[in-house]
């Protein structure tokens, strides 16, 4: 058998087809596909508005009498937290597309192409990041109503922060979705881990006022640095963390999540990929 299996001429070019072209194409497909689903587009525009008004107003009036944070209104305090929540939901749920793509054959057709797995992760994660960054920007439209007036420099830093949070959470969503075969299981994980993560990120109550053990959890929670960076940029002198250290923490978080997603996608096992 072996004596017949003569080898074929191999070329000197690398066997895979590069990083950026496949990553660009996967990013492009993620974004185009999104805008062709009207329901998703409407959801993206409407949900931040509804979410912030309903929850924020409800909380705001209930907290108003005993407002200890010293801010004008709870809606102001809640605004950066709401922004992080919107990014969290959009980022995580765009990666449901990993599960959908696997259910139909689309993902398989990508996996049998000579594409480095890092390109697959990069393309899909940047696609989700783009969508949730756009959603974050739409939510920023409400900023003037909560007394936020930022200069161009701060605005760009806000965009950078939103991008970093989006990228980290989308990569986390990718890593969670990769081994899953059902949307239900994905929802369960999100409810179990990610919503509590947001609750203790300084989104609802400040780190400074928390109990000792809770304060420790909030300090090691990477989302806290996102919330605090945004709060500090939108309301100068209101964050307990320095902007620089928050951004460094976010960059580390994003890098780590990308590596996690890559490790998940790069495994080849004796189990079926679909």
């Amino acid at each position: 058998m072996a004596s017949e299996s003569t080898s074929f001429p191999t070329s000197l070019t690398p066997s895979h087809s590069g990083l950026f072209l496949p990553a660009f194409s996967l990013w492009w497909r993620e974004v185009v596909r999104f805008y062709r689903q009207k329901g998703r587009v409407i959801g993206v525009i409407a949900s931040p508005v509804v979410f912030w008004l309903v929850i924020g107003s409800g909380f705001g009036t209930s907290f108003h009498a005993g407002d200890a944070a010293g801010q004008r209104h709870y809606l102001d305090y809640f605004y950066p937290g709401a922004l992080v929540m919107i990014i969290l939901f959009t980022s995580i749920f765009t990666m449901m597309s990993v599960i959908e793509d696997r259910k139909v054959g689309f993902l398989l057709s990508v996996l049998v192409a000579p594409v480095p797995r890092s390109a697959v992760v990069l393309g899909k994660v940047l696609g989700g990041t783009t969508l949730s960054t756009i959603q974050g920007i739409i939510f920023l439209v409400f900023a003037p109503w909560v007394g936020v007036h930022v200069g161009l420099g701060s605005f760009l830093l806000v965009l950078l922060t939103i991008f970093l949070i989006s990228f980290a959470l989308t990569a986390l969503g990718f890593a969670i979705a990769w081994p899953m075969d059902s949307a239900q299981a994905f929802h369960a994980i999100v409810n179990l881990f990610l919503i509590p993560l947001w609750l203790v990120s300084g989104a609802l109550f400040p780190v400074a006022g928390a109990l000792g053990w809770l304060r420790l959890i909030m300090r090691i929670n990477p989302l806290t640095y996102g919330t605090e960076a945004l709060r500090g940029l939108l309301y100068p002198n209101s964050s307990s963390f320095a902007l620089g250290s928050s951004l460094v923490a976010l960059i580390a978080f994003a890098g780590l999540m990308f590596v996690l997603a890559f490790v998940m996608a790069n495994r080849r096992t004796t189990r079926p990929a679909a």
Partner: peptide
């Protein structure tokens, strides 16, 4: 795998077109 992938076209039972 990547050298092999260059040589093959694959049509799965599940539709892979978007």
């Amino acid at each position: 795998p990547n050298s092999l992938r260059r040589q093959i076209g694959v049509v799965f039972q599940a539709p892979s077109i978007d």
